[in-house]
Design a protein around this nucleic acid. Sequence first.
DNA 1: CCGGATCCGTAACGATACTG
DNA 2: CAGTATCGTTACGGATCCGG
Lengths: 229, 229
Amino acid sequence: MVVSRTYGQLCPIARALDVVGERWTLLVVRELLLGPKRFKDLMARLPAMGTNRLSDRLKSLERDGVIAKRILPPPGEAHVYVLTDAGERLRPAVLCLATWGLERPVDERMDPRTARAELLALVRCGLAPPELTRGAHETYEFQIGEERFHVLVNDGDATPRSGSAPFAPDVTIVCDIPTLLMLDSGQITPARAKRERLARIEGPAAAVRRAFEIFSRKHVTDTLRVVPG
Amino acid sequence: MVVSRTYGQLCPIARALDVVGERWTLLVVRELLLGPKRFKDLMARLPAMGTNRLSDRLKSLERDGVIAKRILPPPGEAHVYVLTDAGERLRPAVLCLATWGLERPVDERMDPRTARAELLALVRCGLAPPELTRGAHETYEFQIGEERFHVLVNDGDATPRSGSAPFAPDVTIVCDIPTLLMLDSGQITPARAKRERLARIEGPAAAVRRAFEIFSRKHVTDTLRVVPG
DNA sequence: CCGGATCCGTAACGATACTG
DNA sequence: CAGTATCGTTACGGATCCGG
């Protein structure tokens, strides 16, 4: 049995790190912020962890009430891991760290093949101003290389989720990662990408525009503040 | 030489954790968010680290541009560690984690003797709404048990710092930790604490009121959001 | 005394193989 | 598919030692 090391300090920061401060733990949370996942789904996204480490982390996160293990109703009966409410409340902290990480230089130890569009979506959706999607209720599906994810927009709130949309999406965007990054950084316009057959983009113009505004790098360069809601 | 383990992922969260994800690292940053510190000051606040671990962390944080080593002008010539601008930008992330940590249950492994008033101040100042101190320019000095720290208020911004104020403060508050926690939670009013000789409180009424409003638990119970500035 | 560096036993990690 | 078991390697924690 593993009794994880704690700081033993009566300080909120140390208390948080006692739960999510160990290696890999926040990356597991990161994956679950994109929706429920099975063991193999997590393993596929965090292969360097090893099955034993993932197993350890899932157990202690469950013990600490950050995640829960659910069994899907038949047919299927797969078990999936889900964030609890407490786990979902880690989203601001994860996004703050991500914002800080964005300005870090990329060094040669980072493998470009680990780049994933849904992780970009996680950050962009979290940082998009609510006004952008106020009053809108729609779904965008992205097919980026082998990846499938969708974004649920619900009146000021945009949450990304792994996998295809569970129903017909309002907008569908199909391209590869380099093209998405060019669209993201504004190096190419959606119209031009479509014209040059780099991307397939379908859906009502207004919704498509909102989808690309969420994926706009400019929101990120703004200073991040922490404010009571 | 220690070449710290990295995740090697091209993801902003993993990039951030590559720098501040190792054990103790964010706690060192936490201490430096309260102002520049000498090696022994850090050691006194993080004794469980051991001098070697602290030395390792300071070196890698300096290499990564999060902290810098400064030599104070004579007399003194002490060397201190300071956060760089990049390090200072970790404040929102640290405060987000603290907010999450506040709602974690306290278990028996946490030593009550590690409780420190200046850490409470770090969280409270970070979470206080700017409107509270808009237009105010003043300094509060706290003498809590053996601890000395002060809060610099500057038009909407309140930053706590370890040690006595470098000049005569506008407000002086002297008490022990239990009393401060009671004041913090609203179990006792400043007026009553003063009357019962539990605290010595000096300064203009308006400034004293502001000082205690920053130290008000209610700001923390609000939901925390991350918004572009 | 301050600011470390060195040494060493233990716990966590990473890779792989194995099992219900 | 969803994990355990095993094992060599790395990081951590405590103590001691050393140069300024």
